[in-house]
């Protein structure tokens, strides 16, 4: 594996290189063009436009004269109780789902990495949620949580409307979030586990380290880069989650599961406040970048 990756490119004659350079450049642009047009038109452009919209009073209606309002949306956001509630729910949701996903996936990956019987069953099952459309996952769990026809009340002998209960709705969707995101994390961690050199464990065993010590002193440090990468990605995905929660609760009951994405969506497409919703989007981007930056910076400092 390493032999193929690290071989340097063959040296070329400098004369040929210079003559071919401008032709090569033209060729490169020509090849990139078909992909660049849609990305610039439908992605980079709108992104910049969206950042600009955050500082206007734009409305999502045909007859409206948009004007620049400076930081008005920002001050409105800071005094908006719904904004604080929504971002708080977003924080609880994304942190707890990411942490639980990681712990559950690490446990499963460790089990799958051992020589247990029936692990192939678990292996296949562990990938299935990944293969399902988010909307179907949402509908499926709605059937599980259904107050009358659902299985959960029957199993627990309770009579609860899980997704409509003020204090239980958020934990209920967190369980679904963990179920949905566990497979990717498990597959990635399992791949990481399989790359830990066997010699390290053998050396540990010679030194008399028990199972727990080997896990703590060999497995975890070796997995560290993989763990940092996948938990960062999971956090971003969870914070930006929309479809799953939209299907399950639409942000209800009483806004108890209204993640920032759902809040911004409602502002933009129900109340047609495009400018304000863009400011919410900008705030989300800043939160994600700040948390990610802080986390990666700390991890890098500790690794040194």
């Amino acid at each position: 594996m390493t032999a193929t990756a690290t071989r340097p490119a063959p040296p070329r004659a400098p004369r040929a290189k210079r003559r071919g350079a401008s032709r090569q450049k033209r060729e490169m642009w020509l090849l990139m063009l078909p992909a660049m047009v849609p990305v610039l038109l439908f992605s980079v452009g709108p992104l910049l436009y969206g950042i600009g919209l955050a500082f206007t009073d734009a409305r999502n209606t045909r007859v409206h004269e948009t004007s620049f309002v400076g930081l008005e949306n920002f001050t409105r956001m800071l005094s908006d109780e719904q904004f604080w509630a929504s971002f708080q729910i977003g924080a609880i949701w994304s942190i707890s789902v990411t942490v639980l996903q990681f712990l559950a996936a690490l446990g499963l990956a460790l089990l799958l990495n051992m020589n247990l019987r029936f692990r192939s069953v678990a292996r296949v099952l562990a990938v299935v949620p990944w293969a399902m459309p988010p909307v179907v996952i949402g509908l499926m769990w709605k059937l599980v949580y259904h107050p009358d026809a659902g299985i959960l009340n029957d199993l627990l002998g309770t009579d609860i409307n899980w997704l409509a209960d003020f204090s239980l709705a958020l934990p209920a969707i967190i369980v679904v979030g963990v179920w949905t995101g566990m497979p990717q994390t498990t597959v990635v961690l399992l791949a990481g586990l399989q790359n830990v050199p066997k010699e390290l464990y053998e050396a540990g065993e010679v030194d008399g380290a028990g199972r727990w010590r080997r896990f703590w002193n060999i497995t975890l440090p070796q997995l560290r880069p993989v763990i940092v990468a996948i938990t960062s990605l999971d956090f971003v995905w969870n914070f930006n989650q929309f479809g799953l929660v939209y299907v399950l609760t639409q942000g209800g009951p009483g806004g108890r599961t209204r993640l920032p994405m759902l809040f911004a969506y409602e502002e933009a497409f129900r109340y047609r406040a495009a400018g304000y919703a863009s400011m919410l989007g900008l705030a989300m981007a800043i939160v994600v970048l700040a948390v990610l930056g802080l986390y990666l910076w700390r991890q890098m400092r500790e690794a040194k």
Partner: peptide
């Protein structure tokens, strides 16, 4: 970058453009 940015920031202007 496209993996990190919240879709909502793109979807609103995109909607206006598409309209």
């Amino acid at each position: 970058v496209s993996q990190v940015f919240p879709f909502i920031l793109i979807i609103i202007p995109l909607f206006l453009i598409m309209r």
